[in-house]
């Protein structure tokens, strides 16, 4: 019965992916992509990756979907594009079929029993003080990846900002929004943020021992902020603002400071001192949380567009 569900899910996923690729209308392709992201969430649940499912739903489906809907709406007036030649299409089909065939052969040839680091994680998780193995990997065993990821996010935002026109610098990202003050958008933008704030912080906090964590929590907080921005209740901060820039670098700098502290107290960069691992992990997460919320939210409106509010 469960296998039937899996097969159905896979068929729908492949169908949606084909729709995204082949649809004539760009808006239909984006709509199908959001559905694809949400169904991928179900696939993660089936593969026992609850933390990944939460991230996929929040970022892969939700935030990416919002970004792409905004883009496709603004590109709506773009002139139609000449279709690819039949030569290109044939080449694409051959390349795609060959890639799929080679990868499928690799999947069928995967070694049995599969190599795994799960026992190693199980043996060492107690030393970190956290109960969620994913959080232990992200902030202890492989914390260098998480540090670099935070820096990549910062670079992406710097890259997006650098695309603003000179006349709009150092203005506010995105276009000024206004919604009817008694409309449903303004209503939701007043009702939902307090609830979202509690849920976002809860998901962040519970991530130490249960599925959840700072990325998922920060995405929910970012979504709440974007909602109030879309309703015109708040405005995006000026990209030149000092508090904003300080908050953007605070997370990675705090993480690096914790890493340097580790090289002094525990003998290696990013090493956590024995017995104090949990407080250090919490300190890093609390330092990263506001930075992640700001970056994830501000990547949606993109470069500065206007000097006035």
């Amino acid at each position: 019965m469960m296998m039937l569900f899996d097969v159905g899910l896979v068929v729908v996923l492949l169908g949606l992916a084909a729709w995204v690729v082949l649809a004539r209308n760009a808006f239909a392709a984006v709509a199908a992509f959001i559905a694809y992201g949400l169904l991928l969430t179900l696939a993660w649940l089936q593969l026992h990756g609850i933390d990944i499912a939460l991230t996929e739903a929040a970022i892969g489906g939700g935030l990416t979907g919002a970004l792409l809907i905004g883009a496709v709406t603004r590109l709506g007036s773009a002139p139609p594009i000449a279709p690819a030649t039949s030569m290109t299409l044939a080449l694409a089909a051959v390349a795609a079929a060959a890639t799929t065939a080679i990868l499928a052969a690799c999947v069928l040839a995967l070694p049995d029993p599969a190599p795994t680091l799960a026992p190693l994680v199980a043996d060492n998780i107690a030393a970190t003080g956290v109960g969620n193995a994913i959080t232990a990997v992200l902030l202890s065993f492989r914390s260098m990846d998480t540090l670099l990821e935070a820096i990549v996010l910062l670079f992406a935002l710097a890259g997006a900002w650098s695309l603003g026109a000179d006349s709009a610098w150092p203005g506010r990202p995105g276009f000024a929004q206004s919604a009817p003050p008694n409309g449903i958008l303004a209503y939701l933008a007043r009702i939902l943020p307090p609830i979202g704030l509690v849920i976002g912080i809860y998901i962040f906090w519970t991530g130490a021992d249960n599925p959840g964590g700072k990325f998922q929590g920060a995405t929910i907080l970012a979504a709440m902020w974007l909602l109030t921005m879309a309703a015109g209740l708040t405005d995006a901060p000026r990209v030149g603002s000092r508090w904003l820039r300080a908050a953007l670098v605070a997370g990675p700098l705090g993480f690096i400071a914790a890493g340097v502290l580790g090289s002094v107290s525990a003998g290696a960069f990013l090493a956590l001192p024995a017995g104090h691992a949990k407080p250090m992990i919490l300190a890093i997460e609390i330092a990263l949380m506001p930075t992640l919320t700001l970056i994830l939210a501000l990547l949606i409106p993109g470069p500065p567009q206007r000097v006035t509010s």
């Binding site: 933390d51 990944i52 994680v121 994913i134 232990a136 990997v137 964590g213």
Partner: peptide, 8 residues
């Protein structure tokens, strides 16, 4: 859990 965390 190691590849799962890297996927996030």
């Amino acid at each position: 859990p190691v590849p799962q965390a890297l996927l996030i």
